[in-house]
């Protein structure tokens, strides 16, 4: 079996097994590097959730921080207002995010391309303002967690980060596995067909609106789970923290940097961007705030100019070009 086939078949389960083994060999603990690892897994899961509709479905949404925020508020509301464990809030939040996604996207899907993207910008602003003035969920102050007992029941760990690591890993595994299953299914092909040509897809019996709405609902559901994790990890939530264009950009840019519409792209994007962001924030803070964002922006600009296919495009681009050239030469040689 050649290496490409082997990786395509076993690469994903092997990676998961390796990541699950990290805490066992003592590589995950209370330190800063564990925080970076957790953030990488969370960000990869967020970008992959976005990638379902933004990459595979081609509907570039800048509205994902809304779904992320609804998930975060779900968990925080259950803990801070409901005085219970976060779990019921996680489920309700994710379902609400999916329903919100359908209601908001239905009119937005009447728009195409850039106009769809612009409409989703507006959605973020609307939700941000509503949550700012909504006292029931803490208004502009947000919701602050009280001290809780450590463990899975409350999904909080005050010092050791192993629990969070495993939680992030479970989230990462869930989102990526869902993507892998969809990618190789009828629904996945329909989603890509809608991206490549909506009218063509419809002429082949595909209900494009139905396909897009389903993908958006699923994407929002998964983004909301990431949001819930984020609230639990930070012990608080407020509107600018979760429902902002900054947060929306993170979903989009990580996926674009890694390789939009690909399985490995979101992970590659997070692997490059997050260490850069976290370490530059930690070590270059004396240069002033926002250094990480400057580096972030620079990388994205360079990437868009030189390789719009992202990191995955760099890794596979040359090879694919060569293969294409070979095939073309062979075809011309074979032509009468």
């Amino acid at each position: 079996m050649d290496i490409r086939k082997f990786l395509s078949k076993y690469g994903w389960p092997l990676l998961l097994a390796a990541l699950a083994a990290l805490p066992l060999v003592g590589l995950v603990g209370p330190g800063f590097s564990s925080h970076v690892l957790i953030t990488i897994l969370l960000t990869a899961a967020m970008a992959q959730a976005w990638n379902l509709i933004g990459g595979y479905g081609g509907q570039v949404s800048f509205g994902h921080s809304v779904f992320f925020g609804i998930g975060a508020y779900g968990a925080a509301f259950a803990v801070c207002v409901g005085k219970t464990t976060p779990w019921p809030g996680v489920i309700v939040g994710a379902l609400l995010a999916a329903v919100t996604a359908v209601i908001v996207s239905y009119p937005c899907f009447k728009l195409k391309g850039h106009y769809f993207a612009i409409a989703t910008f507006a959605v973020v602003e609307i939700f941000n303002r509503v949550f700012m003035i909504w006292d029931w969920v803490g208004g502009a102050v947000g919701l602050d967690y009280t001290i809780l007992e450590d463990g899975w029941r409350n999904f909080t760990w005050s010092v050791d980060k192993r629990g969070y690591y495993l939680g992030a890993l479970a989230l990462f595994a869930l989102v990526f596995t869902v993507t892998r299953v969809i990618e190789r299914s009828r629904f996945g092909y329909y989603l890509r067909a809608v991206r490549e040509g909506q009218e063509t897809a419809e002429s082949l019996g595909v209900n494009s609106t139905g396909v897009k709405l389903t993908a958006m609902a699923l994407s929002a559901f998964l983004a909301a789970l990431c949001g819930a994790f984020f609230a639990q990890y930070n012990f608080r939530v407020d509107p600018p923290m979760v429902m902002s264009l900054d947060m929306s950009m993170k979903f989009v840019l990580v996926a674009i940097l890694g390789g939009i519409g690909t399985f490995w792209g979101p992970l590659l994007g997070a692997l490059v961007l997050i260490p850069l962001q976290e370490y530059s924030r930690a070590y270059l803070a004396k240069l002033g705030s926002g250094v990480d964002l400057i580096i972030f922006g620079l990388i994205i600009i360079l990437m868009m100019v030189y390789q719009p296919g992202g990191i995955l495009g760099i890794l596979t681009g040359t090879k694919a070009r060569k293969a294409r050239l070979r095939a073309r030469l062979a075809a011309e040689g074979g032509a009468k």
């Binding site: 092909y189 890509r192 067909a193 991206r195 490549e196 040509g197 063509t200 519409g261």
Partner: peptide, 8 residues
């Protein structure tokens, strides 16, 4: 006017 799903 042909409409291939180009990236597929």
């Amino acid at each position: 006017v042909v409409r291939p799903l180009k990236e597929m």
